[in-house]
């Protein structure tokens, strides 16, 4: 099982997600620099959290246009599983792999705390390890996590079961409490909360370990 983590300038959760993937797969992920154009062959790709390119212009905007991202987009369109966490979710929206955009939190505060999420769809490769309607606790740490899309898009996403996770107590103003979203072919997930930060009791929780275990089993 080979995995790869894309590293942008000012990514800061790249090592965390690498540890989570190594824990789930037993193998160290390839760390791929944003300026590269060749993506190593892997079974699973991760875009980490952080503040790529300083969040200049819009969160994720510049990273979405970085050299490596064209290769990631091509892989995703060919069906490779891709996850974007936090800044990675913002990058996925900016590439157009996921619809909508992540805007400044409605309350203007940077929100940094553990939040409860409800698993809305457990049929995806990313959430198969959970019961539908199960609750998980993942930390959030973001300033721009306020998910926005027009009503027509939101209706379509909900109708197609593409909301993977919803906030129980919305921390950022996201439309319809959306915390995580799947693309139309089911191989791309973007989510603001950080499962990679709760992969051991030492880190305050293990819901993230269950998340990575489930998704790695699903894509193996």
């Amino acid at each position: 099982m080979k995995t790869a983590v894309i590293v942008f300038p000012a990514s800061n959760c790249d090592r965390d997600i690498a540890v989570a993937l190594e824990q789930a797969t037993g193998a160290k992920p390839a760390m791929v620099w944003h300026g590269d154009t060749d993506l190593p062959d892997a079974d699973f790709y991760a875009l980490p959290g952080g503040f790529s390119y300083g969040d200049y212009l819009r969160a994720g905007a510049m990273a979405a246009k970085s050299p490596i991202m064209q290769a990631v987009i091509d892989k995703a369109k060919a069906g490779a599983p891709v996850i974007g966490v936090c800044n990675g979710f913002q990058v996925l929206c900016e590439t157009g792999l996921l619809p909508g955009a992540l805007m400044r939190n409605a309350g203007l505060d940077f929100v940094c705390r553990t939040v409860a999420l409800r698993v809305e769809n457990n049929q995806s490769i990313f959430t198969r390890g959970f019961e539908k309607g199960a609750y998980v606790n993942f930390p959030v740490a973001h300033h721009d996590g306020n998910y926005y899309a027009d009503d027509e898009t939101l209706d379509r996403l909900e109708g197609e079961g593409r909301v993977a996770f919803r906030y129980v107590d919305n921390p950022n103003g996201s439309a319809r409490d959306i915390a995580g979203l799947i693309n139309d072919s089911g191989n791309v997930l973007g989510m603001m909360p950080h499962p990679e930060r709760v992969i051991s009791p030492l880190l305050g929780g293990t819901d993230g370990a269950a998340f990575f275990k489930g998704l790695i089993e699903a894509v193996s």
């Binding site: 212009l57 905007a61 510049m62 246009k65 929206c93 900016e94 955009a101 805007m103 926005y148 899309a149």
Partner: peptide
């Protein structure tokens, strides 16, 4: 279209 504005919002 390619970078400066995000047509979503």
């Amino acid at each position: 279209k390619k970078l400066l504005a995000n047509p979503v919002m």
